[in-house]
């Protein structure tokens, strides 16, 4: 019992310890905050103007602003979760992580938690600024469902990020390119800037493996109940997100053990400048 308590305390301390730099980093370099809000806003603005040039209905501006805000999470998952162990390897920290007497899952959870909170600040800023600049009004039909969908989207998404982080342990220089490759195709498949329903049932169904696809679709349905662009019923999407959350967290744990072992055997954990 004492052992368990001690391990739990170490686990929690590790989570807090790894989340801390992400949270404190928010205010240490404030110019980063500006860039991380300003850059997605630029892209969002461009997509809003495309819809305006095409004479689209006003709700499409809302779709884009919401999608633009959610890009912050995907970028965070890609560049600060998936590739994180690669950066740590490059800066020489990975070996320190591995010899530390703590759980690697706790490190990943800390990264995820810190990333989630700091990214929420950025996403909220994009959402608020985007809504003000482009005069977007959202009508929330059900706050409870919106909160639940958002929460489950983040859990599933960061679970996926934790899984990717383990997979990227094996990568060298290609990590950067692979993360890069997961940008535009995911923006397309997840319907960041248009309703996912327009891709057709089967493509949307496959794309639903990426949690943000269903999360975005459900949030759009809740915020624009009259638009009629929903892919599946919000309840089905919420349930799927809950299942994806559990699956990705378990998969992340398994993959971490398996891939760390491979990386150790093949001597990839300390190779730098590959």
């Amino acid at each position: 019992m004492k052992n368990f308590q001690r391990e739990l305390a170490v686990f929690v301390r590790t989570v807090i310890g790894r989340a801390y730099p992400r949270l404190i980093g928010l205010q240490r370099e404030r110019s980063w905050l500006f860039f991380e809000i300003f850059l997605p806003l630029l892209g969002t603005a461009a997509f809003v103007y495309i819809y305006r040039a095409l004479g689209a209905k006003p709700e499409f501006t809302g779709f884009v602003v919401l999608g633009g805000a959610m890009t912050a999470y995907w970028m965070n998952v890609l560049w600060s979760m998936a590739t994180q162990f690669y950066w740590e390897k490059e800066t020489g920290n990975l070996a320190l992580y591995l010899i530390a007497p703590t759980s690697r899952m706790a490190i990943l959870l800390g990264m995820a938690l810190g990333g989630m909170i700091s990214t929420t600040v950025r996403a909220l800023a994009v959402l608020i600024l985007g809504s003000l600049v482009f005069r977007v009004t959202f009508t929330v039909s059900d706050w409870g469902s919106l909160g639940l969908v958002f929460f489950l989207t983040l859990v599933a998404l960061y679970g996926m990020g934790m899984m990717f982080a383990s997979a990227f342990l094996l990568y060298g220089r290609e990590a950067w390119h692979m993360a890069n490759l997961l940008q535009e195709p995911v923006f397309l498949l997840s319907g960041f800037y248009f309703p996912i329903k327009s891709l057709g049932f089967w493509i949307s169904a496959v794309a639903s493996l990426i949690p943000i696809t269903l999360g975005l679709d459900a949030m759009r349905q809740i915020l624009y109940p009259q638009a009629g662009w929903g892919f599946l019923d919000v309840r089905i999407e919420t349930l799927t997100l809950a299942i994806l959350s559990v699956v990705f967290l378990i998969a992340a744990h398994r993959m971490l053990l398996w891939l760390e072992n491979i990386a150790r055997r093949e001597g990839r954990l300390t190779v730098r400048g590959q």
């Binding site: 495309i50 819809y51 499409f60 535009e184 397309l188 248009f194």
Partner: peptide, 29 residues
């Protein structure tokens, strides 16, 4: 950074996906 096949796939997928985002936006409207 990779073998020629993966490089070719990478070179194909990224620009086409980028273009398709705009195409789908246009087609939806």
């Amino acid at each position: 950074w990779t073998d020629p096949f993966l490089f070719a796939v990478y070179s194909l997928i990224k620009p086409i996906a980028g273009a398709m985002i705009l195409v789908v936006m246009y087609l939806v409207v």
